[in-house]
């Protein structure tokens, strides 16, 4: 399992991670491609209660999103990330509401961080210019 650590003090709010995430999930693996394909980022840097925070799937041990899904579209994959079965998903949005971290966005189907499982490391952490995001293998 791959954890992504967020060091608030180092984050400058530039959102390079968001751009890198969208690009990583585009067909052409480019920012331009991501914009064309309307890819959304699976991490978001926000200000909450005056503090910077990163909204991203935390890979909970008992994921509420899986629990609430009425059609069983969400499941945990081998590497620990949550995957969505787009054929079954009805876009009801219960998973988004259930997530305590605000990590799920309903795009064409629920988008949840997959830790860039096809890459060596998550591209958000790789792109972070200040190293506020760091990967940790568990």
């Amino acid at each position: 399992m791959v954890k992504i650590l967020f060091e608030r003090d180092k984050c400058l709010g530039c959102k390079t991670c968001e751009l890198a995430c969208a690009a990583a999930h585009s067909k052409t693996k480019s920012l331009l491609g991501a914009i064309k394909e309307k890819k959304v980022s699976r991490i978001r840097i926000k200000v909450k209660n005056g503090k910077l925070s990163a909204e991203q799937c935390a890979l909970c041990s008992n994921p509420r999103c899986i629990e609430v899904c009425p059609v069983g579209a969400l499941s945990r994959s081998k590497n620990g990330t949550i995957k969505v079965n787009p054929l079954v998903c009805t876009m009801c949005g219960l998973c988004r509401e259930a997530c305590p971290f605000g990590a799920i966005v309903l795009s064409s189907y629920p988008t949840i961080c997959d830790r860039c499982s096809e890459q060596d490391e998550p591209l958000c952490a790789k792109a972070c210019p200040t190293r506020a995001l760091k990967m940790k293998a568990m």
Binding site: C11, L12, G13, C14, K15, I45, K46, V47, L52, P129
Partner: peptide, 10 residues
Amino acid sequence: MQPQCGFGET
């Protein structure tokens, strides 16, 4: 617009 990019801001 929050957070605004710290690089630009500084």
